[in-house]
Design a protein around this nucleic acid. Structure first.
Length: 231
DNA sequence: GCGACAG
DNA sequence: ATCTTGTCGC
């Protein structure tokens, strides 16, 4: 008997997965869920693309200067072998290594990073954006295309409208309308930001598409690189 | 036992 | 996530 969103009964999981879950529980204690002071002038987006044959993938990061017009100032990619299966709730153990490899090539250190996944809107309040933000010691925000946990009400069909995402009686994120007549996205604080700033940054970096520009371009970048490298 | 389940 | 062309709708 499992409550909704009680993903992966730990008792039946392989030891390495149980260990991963314990790691998340320990690391989440170090998360900073308040807005950290400091100017935000550069924003990065990161994403991963999987090789068709399933044993390798690519990570990409794109850095933008924040302004009226977003100006791309740097991008980096990395290639690596997949060492961990996809298990809802344990995505960071699969994607963090390759993402870190790409971040190491970066010369700039962005003031905030947007990730293609959840922040604290997660069974243990420690999704990909939280994990990466903590490791990189950067502000991080989760921008997912679908729900992992939580309940929410309908979102008005107006850009900027949102409803809070509740999980265990706590607002862990927002279901945000970034484009009319289009499904909303799931924004949640990852690290060193609060929900209000997470929503603000996500909206401020949207340019007419559902996905915030940094993540959208990181997505395009990795897909382009993957298709070229396969040849 | 069934349904839910980021990418 | 990925395999994939056209097609319906704003």
């Amino acid at each position: 008997m499992h409550k909704r969103n009680e993903i992966q009964p730990v008792a039946f999981m392989a030891p390495r997965y149980k260990k991963a879950i314990e790691v998340q529980k320990v690391l989440r204690e170090q998360l900073i869920l308040k807005r950290v002071a400091g100017k935000i002038s550069t924003v990065a987006g990161a994403d991963v693309s999987y090789d068709k044959h399933g044993d390798s993938f690519f990570a990409g990061v794109v850095v933008y200067k924040l302004g009226k017009q977003l100006e791309k100032i740097e991008e980096a990619t990395a290639h690596g072998r997949i060492r961990f299966p996809y298990i809802p709730g344990l995505l960071s153990f699969r994607e963090a290594p390759i993402l870190l490899k790409a971040f190491k090539k970066l010369k700039n250190d962005p003031d905030v990073i947007l990730f293609d996944g959840q922040g604290i809107a997660h069974p243990r309040h420690f999704g990909l954006a939280s994990h990466m933000g903590l490791i990189l010691d950067r502000r991080a925000i989760g921008c997912a295309k679908s729900r992992l946990v939580g309940e929410f009400r309908c979102v008005k069909n107006v850009v900027g409208a949102y409803s809070k995402l509740f999980y265990q009686h706590e607002a862990v994120g927002a279901v945000l309308r970034t484009k009319v007549n289009t499904n909303p996205i799931f924004v949640s604080p990852g690290h060193k930001v609060n929900l209000a700033l997470a929503i603000h940054i996500a909206l401020a970096t949207c340019r007419g598409y559902r996905i915030p520009e940094p993540v959208r371009h990181a997505h395009l970048l990795v897909n382009r690189v993957r298709k070229e490298q396969i040849k």
